[in-house]
Simulated scan of single mutants.
Amino acid sequence: MKKDLHPTYNEVTIQLADGTEFVTRSTMDRDTYASEVDSTNHPFYTGRRQFVDTAGRVEKFNRRYGITDDSDDDEDDDA
């Protein structure tokens, strides 16, 4: 095998959002890692759902790209 091919494998202390800590091994170059999301606060595990305002996202997309909402009402008035 080639020398210096693989990254170093160090012990890292992981701190979860609820304050619990555990030690594992990783290739990260730090001694500690603070996680913002874990099983105590992630919606998949807690069952709490977040509803996304899709209409607001569509409007934001249309504003960003200058798309106007030309509705079909003009065609109905001509008939």
Rank of each mutant, 00 (worst) to 15 (best):
D4G: 12
H6A: 03
P7A: 13
P7Y: 11
T8N: 05
Y9G: 02
Y9F: 03
N10Q: 01
E11T: 15
E11V: 09
E11C: 05
V12Q: 03
T13G: 01
T13R: 04
Q15Y: 00
Q15M: 01
A17G: 04
D18E: 12
G19E: 04
G19Y: 02
T20W: 13
T20V: 13
E21S: 11
E21F: 13
F22L: 06
T24W: 14
R25D: 07
D29P: 07
R30V: 14
S35H: 15
S35D: 15
E36Y: 05
V37L: 10
D38H: 14
S39A: 15
H42G: 12
P43A: 02
G47T: 15
G47L: 11
R48G: 08
Q50C: 04
F51M: 07
F51P: 07
V52M: 13
D53Y: 09
T54N: 05
A55D: 01
G56M: 10
R57N: 09
V58R: 01
E59D: 02
E59K: 06
K60I: 13
K60V: 09
N62A: 11
N62T: 06
N62S: 10
R63D: 06
R64Q: 05
I67T: 11
I67N: 12
D69Q: 05
D69F: 02
D72C: 02
D74K: 00
